[in-house]
Simulated assay, not measured.
Amino acid sequence: MHDGRLVDMVARKTAVLDRAAAMGLDAAAVTRAHLPESVRRDLGLFLDQGRHGTMAWMAETRDRRGDPRVLWPGAVSIITLGLTYGPGHDPLAPLAQRDRGAVSVYARGRDYHDVLKKRAKALARWMHATLETDVKVFVDTAPVMEKPLAAQSGLGWAGKHTNLVSRRFGSWLFLGEIFTTLALPPDPPEADRCGSCRRCLDACPTGALDPADPYRIDARLCVSYLTIEHKGPIPRALRARLGNRVYGCDDCLAVCPWNRFARATPHEALAARPALVAAPRLADLAALDDAAFRALFSGSPIKRTGRDRFVRNVLIALGNSGRPDLLPAVAVRLADPSPLVRGAAVWALRRLTPSRTSIARDRDRHLAGETDPDVRDEWTAPLS
C-alpha cells in the first residue's frame, strides 16, 4: 500500500475514534466488514440444533447475519461502538426480596436502543459530511453479529456466557455498529482472558450455560429468552428456577470477575429510573392493566415485551415467593382477559394455596367457564 494512502487512512481512523469519544461513546474500534467462517459455522450449529427457540427471525436471516457483506455489499469497514451500563450497586440483591420483582440491569433505565442509536447516528452523519463516505447505523436493528464483530475489533472478547467481556467495562457494555464504505486500518482482536474461570457457567439458574460446553448457550433455557422473547406459557419444568426474575437475568453477567474494573454508568439515561431503583412489589406489578403498564414503562425496553407477557412473568414470581399472603394479587388474575396471564395465575395459585379443598373449589368455579385449553390444563397438570 502506498505510504501516503496509509497515512491518510490512519488519520481518518484517528479522527473517527476521537469524534466518537467526544460524542460520549465509551468504546470505539474498527474492524473489516468480514467475519470468519468459524462464526458462520457456530451460527449454523446454533440454529440447526434449534437452540434459538421461537426466534424464527434468526434462522430467516441466517445468510445476512453470518456475513456483513451480504447485509450491505458496499461495506468495507465497521466501526464498533460501546456504551457502558454498569450498575452502581449489587445487581443480584433483588433476588433475595421474594415479594419483589428482579429486573435486569439493562432494562432499569431508558431503552438503550434509543440512547446509543442517537449518538451512533450523530457520528455517522459527521463521517458522511466530513469524510465523504456512505454509512449505515445498526443498534440491534438488523441481522448483525454484534458480539463477534466487537470481539474482532478488540472491544473485548466473547466470554463463556456468550456475551462480550471488556477489560475496562466488564460484562456491562451495549453495542452498536456503523458500516462504512471507507477503508480504515482494523484494530487487533482482544485475547480471550476467561482462563479457567467458570463463575458464569455455575451461576446460570436454568442450565442454559453448560459447563461442559462453554461459550455456547441454549436460548430455550435462558431466563432472558423465557421472560422477554418467549410468547407462550413458560415451560413448567423451568418456572421454579426463575425465582423472582420478572424481566431478564443478570446472574451470569454479574458474577464475572472482570466487573471489578467497571464503573457505574455515567450516562444518566441508562441509570436506573426511580420506579426501578428499588425492586418493585410483585403485588403492584400483577395489578397492571395495559394502560398502567404502558405508563409505568414508557421509554423502557420492558414496554416492547407487552403487558401480558410481563404479568405472566410476575405471576410466576409470585408463585415462587412462598408467600400465601400474596394470594389476593394472584386470585384477581384468574379472570384476566389474557389466557397467558390466567394460566400463569392458576399455576401461582396452586403453588401458594395450602388447602387442597380450597384449590378444588377454585378449580371447579373457574373451569366451568374456561375455554382456553392451556389454561384448563394448568388446573389439572402435575404441579412442578
Rank of each mutant, 00 (worst) to 15 (best):
R110H: 10
S171M: 07
P211A: 00
L92R: 15
E378L: 12
V139A: 01
V246T: 07
T265L: 07
H34C: 07
A262F: 08
A150N: 02
D308N: 11
P382L: 07
A59G: 15
G82Y: 04
G248H: 00
D63E: 15
S38A: 10
A269S: 09
S384E: 08
R307C: 14
A283Y: 01
L327Q: 12
L92S: 14
D111F: 03
K117Q: 13
F169Q: 08
G306E: 05
E132N: 13
P188L: 13
N313Q: 03
A335N: 11
V346D: 12
T84G: 14
R236H: 11
N244P: 07
G322E: 05
F261D: 04
T265R: 12
V144G: 06
I228M: 12
T84H: 13
A22S: 15
Q152E: 08
L270M: 13
C249W: 01
A360Q: 12
P354A: 07
G88Y: 10
L92E: 15
G50L: 01
L35V: 06
V135W: 14
A331L: 15
D284P: 03
A254E: 08
A151S: 00
A151P: 03
G44H: 02
D308C: 03
Y247E: 02
L25V: 05
L238D: 14
T357H: 09
S300I: 08
R356I: 01
T380A: 07
T80H: 11
F261A: 14
G176V: 10
I178D: 07
C200Y: 00
V314Y: 00
V10S: 05
M55P: 11
D187N: 07
G232V: 10
L282R: 00
D377E: 14
L253R: 13
E37F: 04
F138S: 11
L285K: 01
V277A: 09
F46K: 08
L81W: 01
D18S: 12
A15Q: 14
R323H: 10
D8S: 14
S153Y: 06
K13I: 04
P205V: 05
L296E: 14
A262H: 12
P188V: 12
S358L: 06
A345H: 04
L238W: 10
A150P: 01
L6D: 07
T206P: 09
P337D: 11
A335Y: 12
E132M: 07
P205R: 08
V346T: 09
G82I: 04
R312I: 04
